[in-house]
Write a protein that binds this DNA or RNA. Structure first.
Lengths: 153, 153
DNA sequence: CGGATTTATTTCAAGCATAAAATATCTTTG
DNA sequence: CAAAGATATTTTATGCTTGAAATAAATCCG
């Protein structure tokens, strides 16, 4: 590829990044806003509940932090609040007195079912401009980026 | 479109959203990390400096908040910190004693030039898996989403 | 066994982000 | 002109996020 084409591709990638960021921020803001106004909750709490909903037997704090790719201290705070709401509970782990297992309460499971359904509808509406085919193509491009990023890390 | 195809498209859009979010979070995290370790600064400060660099005559606080789509109070804090670093300055606006104009200092302009060049290189490397053509196509898809979102708001 | 290291979690300080309230000033309008 | 409303900014309270330090418990290994 020529030097000029390289330079052009670089500028295009920068523009793509800015647009990607803007779009994902806009969608995220819409989701946060609806979670707050319609259900009085937040995206981080939703994300933790989603992870817990997938593993009914519970997850250790460190597992939760690893899966969500956020710091340990962050998870501590979010689980504190979910626990205060009665949506999650910590339990001692048999055989390791350092560890804590977190799981959804019955109330938490019921609440999450409602949230998840609304969330799926919102996303579907927000991304209504994308067809099934476009979505597939973008996903495969993003997979390439993710694999590349993974290697670099 | 059949009911089944509709359902399938909905699930695909949800998967796309999760992937979009994950990718953009990963790239953003890499940029934050480099800004912090290599330059001791942050993405919000970079964003404010980028907006100010585009308008050398300065911007009012409210203009800045509108362009970056963040709250007024948020801009207050970021500009406070940029000012403390000596990278930006507030000036009274002639004819409106409520308003403040913010602009980069000479040191701020010099610092931002360095940051912006590194930033462009990082983005280019992080998105290296995307070709010029793919980038163009994804951007036009994202434009469709953005237009759609704009209407809904 | 017992000291050194690793692992699991929490705490802490700082910054970012929001919505809502507070201030101050400008503009409109009766 | 004066009250009412609009606009510009800051302050406040709350929550999310991180990296680094602090605790506590488990594991390793000489």
């Amino acid at each position: 590829m020529s030097v000029e084409a390289q330079l052009r591709a670089g500028k295009t990638r920068l523009r793509l990044w800015l647009k990607l960021l803007k779009t994902s921020n806009a969608i995220e803001a819409a989701l946060r806003d609806r979670l707050r106004t319609e259900f009085g909750t937040t995206l981080p709490r939703f994300d933790v509940m989603a992870a817990l909903a997938r593993t009914p037997e519970g997850l250790k704090m460190s597992e939760l932090s690893r899966r969500l790719r956020v710091s340990n201290g962050n998870v501590t705070g979010i689980v504190d609040r979910l626990e205060a709401e009665g949506h999650a509970e910590r339990r001692a782990v048999a055989g390791d007195r350092r560890a804590m297992e977190v799981r959804l309460t019955a109330a938490g499971r019921a609440h999450f079912a409602t949230l998840a359904e609304a969330h799926e509808d919102w996303v579907n509406a927000l991304m209504g401009a994308i067809t099934e085919e476009e979505a597939q193509r973008i996903m495969s491009d993003l997979d390439a980026v993710a694999r590349d990023l993974e290697e670099k890390r």
